[in-house]
Amino acid sequence: MTGRTRDPDYRNPDYIQPMELDPSGAVVVVPEERSAGLHLPGEPVEDETPEPVPAPRRWAVRLLVGSAAVLVALAIGYDTVDLVRRAFDTSMVLGIGAAAVAAGTVLGAFGLLAGELRSLRRLRQIDGLRQDAEHLRAADSHGEAERYAGAVAALYRDRPDLTLQITALKDHLNDAHDDREVIRMVDLQLLQDIDRRAYQLVLRASRDTAIATALSPAALLDVAIVLWRNLKLVRQVASLYGARPGYVGGLKLLRRMLGNIAVAGVAETGNHLVAEALGSTLAASLSARVGQGVINGLLTARIGLTAMHLCRPLAYDETNRPSLKRIRRELLSVPKQVL
């Protein structure tokens, strides 16, 4: 070994001569599936949602809500137990009935809670997946992304509408692909198909809100429609990406989305915003109602697109992010349809 080498490998005691090995001991590297604990070991899962406003008195709120909830639960529990006891005093049959109904209620509540928790965990899983993908995309590594691909495939395992895509994905992946290619393959073969469907959903929802707002007689009804339709859209988009959020999850997503829209304007570039503003003023000058409809439609569209961003197990890159362009064009034709 020479001392003048720049390459540390040469002096490396681990250096191994090229050789042929026993074929019987070799193992093919196969993509393994991973369903739980999706983030790479050793990397903490951080909640990437930006904290919009620092909350200095959060603990007080928590204390208030927590104690109130315990108080209510205690009161209801106490009352229920009292009720059941009194029912037993009256007659045995009534008592058993009341007890059964009470048990059913408790069970149902637990079931609901469990469902919500599960859905929240799934959302977190997807967040973890997205972070994994970012790490893999940045690193020049090999052989790590198979687990990611397996995890994404596992996420959509029970979806009959995606079996074809998953089969194609598994078909095309082989041992020669490096991590970046695997990630791109997942994007291309599986997620872009979901993207197209999600985009359709967003398109439809934004048209719905636009037309409904334009036609609704009362302002209060507008708000209700927009809220309901947006929540429904978010849940639809999330289920399409495999997040299947419950009510709490949906609300949480919606809240996160509103924060994201306000903070970053995820889907937008500058000219989008300008065009949007121009388009909406034009529409507004045509008719205040219809203009409002268009604006509401745009809002829905932005919420939908943000939902796509947040529920996708892989962040969009520069080339494939969904744009408002088509939706805007569609929405600007709403005045024509309505008038």
Binding site: D14, I16, M19, L21, P23, V27, V28
Partner: peptide, 29 residues
């Protein structure tokens, strides 16, 4: 195809295929 094979307690990435002029596959590092 790329395979993993163990050599003196270390995992090596190797290729498995049939070399020219032979009939049996070999694993080459």
């Amino acid at each position: 195809e790329t395979v993993m094979a163990e050599h003196q307690g270390r995992q090596l990435s190797c290729v498995r295929g049939i070399p020219l002029g032979r009939m049996e596959p070999t694993v080459l590092y």
